[in-house]
């Protein structure tokens, strides 16, 4: 979209609102997500965090955020956001805070929280039409505790609690559809490896009042077992293989924002990651790879 301030990749380098030098793993896709989000959203923010890897961004007595931060709990960050939003509105209404001091309220959680423990509080926040941003960085597992499987873990991936030959036998929950069913003001999938798509979506959301929901696939070298420098290429492959569809929900309609004409085979994405190594060695598990491929193909046929 052209009406935004960010027209090309160079514009993205303009503002930096997240200081570097945090204790996050090298090559962390989630950190890229948070950084991009902060840069686009600006300084006037309060992040409400649920337990996860990003909790380690703000370690006493330092915070890398230009804005404010409150750690709540794994299950209730959305409720924490509601409390702050309500409080800011009350203060402004009663004249105890000037409107110029107002802040954007952002929930920052991992997938374990978003897809599981935090879902009830988030669902209720959408029900109440809370004016907030919700950013789920999805590393497809309970990363902070050593990458056990969560409800966002993909079929076939090995995790700390799915180490058999089959990997994780569950199916990734379709959180996008669950949220869409709540009719939020805005909802999108994003990935930091596609920064222009990401930026356009955040800019779109910034013009809308109400719940603005983001799920960002966040490649995780530590949990997915690949080299830190591969984060961007793996992220791009997630999109190009069709595994991570980039889409948005607005005014009751779902639109795919990047339709790949010639999708790459899922293998290209899977083979770079140690968590899928058992699909390739000691011999190729064609049955499982084909199963993953056909579920991706089916998705793109169905839409």
């Amino acid at each position: 979209m052209s009406e935004g301030l960010i027209k090309n990749i160079k514009d993205l380098a303009g503002e930096h609102n997240l200081a570097s030098g945090t204790s996050i793993c090298a090559g962390c896709g989630a950190l890229e997500t948070v950084k991009l989000f902060c840069d686009i959203l600006g300084k006037n923010t309060v992040f409400v965090n649920a337990a996860g890897c990003m909790t380690l961004l703000a370690i006493y007595p330092f915070t890398p955020f230009s804005g404010s931060w409150l750690y709540t709990a794994m299950a209730s960050a959305s409720a924490g956001a509601q409390g702050i939003r309500d409080a800011l509105d009350i203060l402004i209404k009663k004249g105890r805070l000037s409107a110029a001091e107002d802040l954007k309220v952002i929930v920052l959680t991992g997938d374990g929280s978003a897809y599981g423990m935090g879902l009830s509080a988030t669902s209720a926040a959408i029900d109440r039409c809370l004016d907030f941003y919700y950013l789920c960085y999805n590393n497809e597992g309970y990363g902070n505790t050593g990458h056990q499987d969560s409800a966002a873990t993909p079929y076939g991936a090995r995790t700390a609690t799915s180490s058999s030959g089959a990997g994780f036998i569950g199916r990734k929950k379709d959180l996008f559809s669950i949220w869409a069913a709540h009719k939020p003001a805005y909802l999108a999938t994003v990935i930091a490896a596609e920064p222009m798509d990401f930026a356009r979506k955040v800019e779109t959301a910034m013009k809308i009042k109400g719940p603005k929901m983001f799920i960002s696939l966040a490649p995780c070298p530590t949990g997915w077992h690949y080299e830190p420098h591969q984060t961007v290429s793996i992220g791009k492959l997630a999109v190009q293989t069709g595994i991570w569809p980039l889409k948005e929900y607005k005014d009751g309609k779902v639109t795919h924002t990047k339709v790949i004409k010639e999708k790459l085979p899922v293998e290209e994405y899977l083979k770079l990651q140690g968590r899928f190594e058992h699909l390739f060695t000691p011999e190729k598990n064609l049955v499982l790879i084909n199963e993953i491929q056909s579920s991706v193909d089916q998705y793109w046929i169905d839409i």
Partner: peptide
Amino acid sequence: IYSASAPQARGLIVL
């Protein structure tokens, strides 16, 4: 109080 001009961080982790 959270405000644009006076950010604060709460509930931090200690190591």
